[in-house]
Design a protein around this nucleic acid. Structure first.
Lengths: 178, 178
DNA sequence: TATAGATATGCAACTGTATGCATATGGAAG
DNA sequence: CTTCCATATGCATACAGTTGCATATCTATA
């Protein structure tokens, strides 16, 4: 139940609407977590129903009305309790590995094509991360405020992952050529 | 729908039972894919119902009876079609990153503890992979038969992932000490 | 003879994620 | 004046994965 807690954290930092949360998640999308607006609105509903968040409806002119969510004392407590729990490890399941496992049934040539396509995807991902780094995290880490350091570290993990994948792909392509 | 296709691949390589498939998945567990026996039996049922697998019941003495599954022509075709499709990229979501994102709400000390715990988990995972490598993949890759090379490559990806994570953790621990 | 463990199979309920569909306001551009 | 885009919210369905529970055979060990 991680998305619930991510939303809780976002709202704890700054009260906001489903729309805003969705956009914030889109911006950290990929290097960290993904969620659709449908998911976000549903979790907000659940969170409000269980008393971890509360909301007020705000009328706007020039734009549709909105619901602004804020965290409750109960919500803050629940988040802290979750934070202190042991974190379950990510299950790094890559469907491409199934194709490796089964490649001889279809042919190594086809596997090579699959690997090349996957490589393109990972290269694009890494390029996107590097662009974000160049735009927003160019200054040395020790000069950033803590909150920015922390988000930068999540980006760094994304980059480390992609670089490791690409190195593995080099090694594998070489072995498959033989 | 990757588990379905992994099972299809396993059965295509060698006809087998739910029990055997579960054990095979347990052995490659972690560095590749995870599934419970309940999941396996359910997928086998679905696969047989849609005609991608067929099974015969085999009576045993000294052991409970079993169902041996084999792939059908339709199953083989479905698998090949899936193989040729573009692979969707793994969604690398790590719940620990949520704790990074939200660490200032709870305290950097608690984050450090979380990071240390997660590190222990990843170190154990890497050690397990390295043990498998030493036991089963000690010979040079070019001397292995193709099928073994391919499985070894999936193990190598698991190791690359863990090593990248640990390097990232070093970097992050250093930054958090400052 | 009781009990634990390996072999063998499965249902039911729940949680989490993904996908498709639906609606509404108001500004900007063609 | 129509269509597109940003803003704003949500339901319903399906699929995938997790957890708890249940059953049965036979061997080996205490």
């Amino acid at each position: 139940m991680s998305l619930k807690h991510l939303i809780l954290a976002l709202v704890a930092t700054r009260q906001s609407t489903g729309y805003e949360i969705t956009k914030e998640l889109d911006e950290v999308a990929g290097f960290f977590w993904r969620a659709t607006h449908q998911q976000v609105y549903r979790e907000l509903g659940d969170l409000a129903e269980t008393g971890l968040l509360r909301f007020r409806e705000v009328e706007q002119n020039g734009k549709p009305d909105k619901k602004v969510y804020a965290i409750t004392a109960k919500g803050r407590k629940a988040f802290e309790a979750w934070f202190l729990e042991p974190t379950d490890p990510p299950r790094g399941a890559d469907p491409l590995m199934i194709k490796f496992f089964a490649a001889e049934l279809v042919g190594i040539d086809e596997l090579r094509k699959q690997l090349a396509n996957a490589r393109a995807g990972h290269e694009a991902m890494l390029a996107a991360y590097e662009a974000i780094e160049a735009q927003h995290y160019a200054e040395p880490m020790r000069k950033m405020p803590r909150w920015k350091q922390l988000i930068f570290m999540t980006l760094r993990l994304g980059m480390a992952r992609e670089r490791a994948w690409l190195e593995w792909a080099d090694e594998s392509e070489k072995a498959l050529r033989a």
